[in-house]
Design a protein around this nucleic acid. Structure first.
Length: 616
DNA sequence: CTAGGGTTAG
């Protein structure tokens, strides 16, 4: 089963002979000394050129057969994402020792190949090489998600059997990993913590942040109050809990009480205020920060961008660059996502330029974020250009481009790409089909959409989620097949939510189907308190001149305390965002704007009624 | 081994 060991670098192993330095000029000797000094740091070296240079030297002196040296090489190669080379170094050994196995396991995990890490672990077991207290934390780093729970439990059993709980790192990383395994991991984490004989600050902090992440704030707070020694991490963990729960008042109170605050504490507050929409408070916190890193800059810029406040976002972005802050993956992905959401093409292009200027590595994720930004900002051409040229697409790339094209009316092109995706052997997933159904909706291909919905289940075994039913309701609804849409809602295996009803309501409004509206009117008041739906419903009633019903819906809204914020449309012209509400006359150029809107309406009317091109 | 920002979805 195991690969034949081969000596790929130097031919058959030779006896190691120390390189003599005698008789060399002093300069060489000193270089040699520097080489040896740097060699001791080799396992931390992230520069591939340097690592290769060292590697050449090591090969020359046959020291790659020294397990200690080989372990360093494996580690260095993994940092440079050269798993092929790391494996080759490892494969030089007939009987790798525990340390070498550990380094390979860690290498796989760091390069997101957790399954290979576990394969290595099994191989270690079969070959009778004992694991040690380092092996388990490395393996655990590769576990996350519900599917990993059984693996973590298996590791837990191993650890118990071989008595590695003595090293506090082991139970600590077990607790941490249990929390990464979803709801089911929580009780396991609690149980382990309760039986631990010794706990250090990390153990307590891991528990607190885990509980806070899952919203068990009271429990987290109890541990926080109970723990013997609190450090800044403990305070930050509980602070993060309040922020995640959206309770900025509690967060602020705690923040004020903190004995010391670091960049993370301040950033957590900035991010919290951003998330609850209090961008001015976020800005104040940001300005008050004594030290800023790239993270808070990213948070505040993304915050403005998300709100569509292009001018402020761009000003801050320029300030950040002037301050010499170096952008990283997080910055790029976070800001581009915000630009995509709000349609801020200007800022998105700035980020694109910065990527090129700083030479930030264009990973698939970075390119995906760029493509999504261009597509959502209406630049399908640029999105497609990058997509076509990207060296390694993943399923997400395909999903983004398909949905991007679909949402902007290029239904045919989107479906064409869906076919190409399958030809290129990418397995469509549940997100892909959202884009595909969206394409059918926008292209008016109702029956074809229904076929895809079946294909999704039959050919790919995807169980439709409520989002898919939402697409389907939209597809049928916009296609005027309201009865089928309503039947679909009734036959869904899950409870319809406000989004589903809203979609159908929207269709009723367009197609003026008062029968369905009646059914909906009854259903919607039962259990879906969505302000948008109430207001659509009342609009439908008004449009049907059923003033009594319209009034009763409005009344019901008021009595249930629902307020509908007015809908706005916005347009970004030279990074100035212009907002419009219905019957809005506040814009300085309102008259001209409405004239153009009327022209467009007439053009649309002609097209919809099939009068053909007016150039005929 | 623990703390802040991280791409796709009506």
């Amino acid at each position: 089963m195991f690969q034949q060991r081969s000596n790929l670098f130097t031919g058959p192993p030779r006896m190691s002979t120390p390189v003599s330095v005698a008789g060399r000029p002093p300069r060489w000797v000193s270089r040699r000394r520097i080489f040896e000094q740097n060699l001791s740091e080799l396992h931390k070296c992230r520069n591939l050129a340097h690592v290769k240079k060292f590697f050449a030297q090591i090969l020359k002196s046959d020291r790659h057969l020294d397990p200690q040296m080989a372990a360093k090489l494996v580690s260095a190669f993994s940092l440079c994402h050269q798993m092929g080379l790391a494996v080759k170094v490892f494969a030089q050994f007939d009987e790798p020792n525990t340390h070498l196995y550990n380094m390979l396991i860690r290498a796989y995990v760091k390069n997101s190949q957790a399954s290979k890490a576990f394969e290595t672990f099994w191989r270690m077991q079969i070959n009778g090489v004992p694991a040690d207290n380092f092996t388990y934390p490395f393996l655990l780093k590769g576990c996350s998600g519900e599917s990993c729970l059984h693996l973590v439990q298996m590791i837990h059993t191993h650890v118990e059997k071989f008595g590695f709980f003595a090293d506090i790192f082991v139970p600590n990383s077990l607790i941490d990993t249990y929390y990464k395994c979803g709801q089911l991991g929580i009780s396991a984490a609690k149980k382990l913590f309760s039986v631990m004989e010794e706990r250090d600050t990390v153990s307590w902090n891991t528990m607190i942040s885990g509980l806070a992440r899952y919203g068990e704030l009271a429990e987290a707070r109890r541990l926080f109050d109970e723990m013997p020694m609190r450090d800044t991490i403990s305070w930050n963990a509980i602070l993060d809990g309040y922020v995640k729960a959206g309770d900025m008042n509690a967060a602020f109170q705690l923040f004020e009480k903190m004995p010391e605050r670091n960049v993370v504490s301040w950033s957590t507050m900035v991010s919290g205020y951003t998330k609850v929409g209090e961008i001015d408070m976020a800005r104040m916190m940001f300005e008050m920060m004594p030290v800023k890193s790239v993270v808070p800059w990213t948070i505040i810029i993304s915050g403005y961008a998300q709100k569509g406040l292009a001018k402020e976002a761009i000003m801050l972005y320029d300030q950040m660059e002037e301050a010499g802050v170096i952008i990283d993956y997080g910055t790029v992905i976070s800001i581009l996502a915000a630009c995509a959401e709000s349609g801020l093409l200007g800022l998105g292009q700035k980020v694109c330029t910065s990527i090129q200027r700083t030479g930030l590595k264009c990973t698939t994720s970075v390119l995906n974020a760029l493509i999504d930004m261009y597509a959502k900002c209406g630049r399908s051409d640029e999105a497609l250009r990058i997509f076509n040229r990207m060296p390694e697409k993943d399923a997400v790339s395909w999903n983004i481009i398909i949905h991007g094209l679909a949402a902007h009316g290029y239904a045919g092109k989107a479906l064409e790409l869906f076919d190409r995706m399958k030809q290129d052997n990418f397995e469509p997933d549940e997100v892909t089909f959202i884009g595909v159904l969206c394409a059918c909706t926008h292209g008016g291909f109702v029956d074809r959409g229904l076929d895809y919905f079946l294909e999704m289940q039959k050919a790919y075994g995807i169980v439709p989620k409520i989002e898919h039913y939402g697409c389907l309701v939209d597809l049928l609804g916009r296609g005027g097949r309201l009865k089928e849409a309503l039947d679909l809602i009734h036959s869904m295996p899950m409870e319809p939510n406000a989004i589903i009803w809203g979609t159908l309501l929207g269709a009723c409004r367009v197609h003026d189907d008062s029968n369905t509206t009646e059914v909906l009117g009854r259903l919607i008041v039962l259990d879906n308190y969505d302000s948008g739906n109430f207001s659509t419903l009342s609009n439908i009633c008004s449009a049907a001149r059923d003033w009594d019903s319209a009034a009763s819906v409005r009344l019901q809204m008021r009595s249930s305390g629902i307020q509908k914020p007015s809908g706005v449309s916005s347009i970004d012209v030279d990074d100035e965002v212009h907002e419009f509400t219905a019957f809005d006359m506040s814009h300085t150029e309102s008259n001209d704007i409405y004239k153009i809107v009327d022209t467009i309406r007439m053009d649309l009317g002609e097209t919809l009624l099939g009068h053909g091109s007016r150039h005929q």
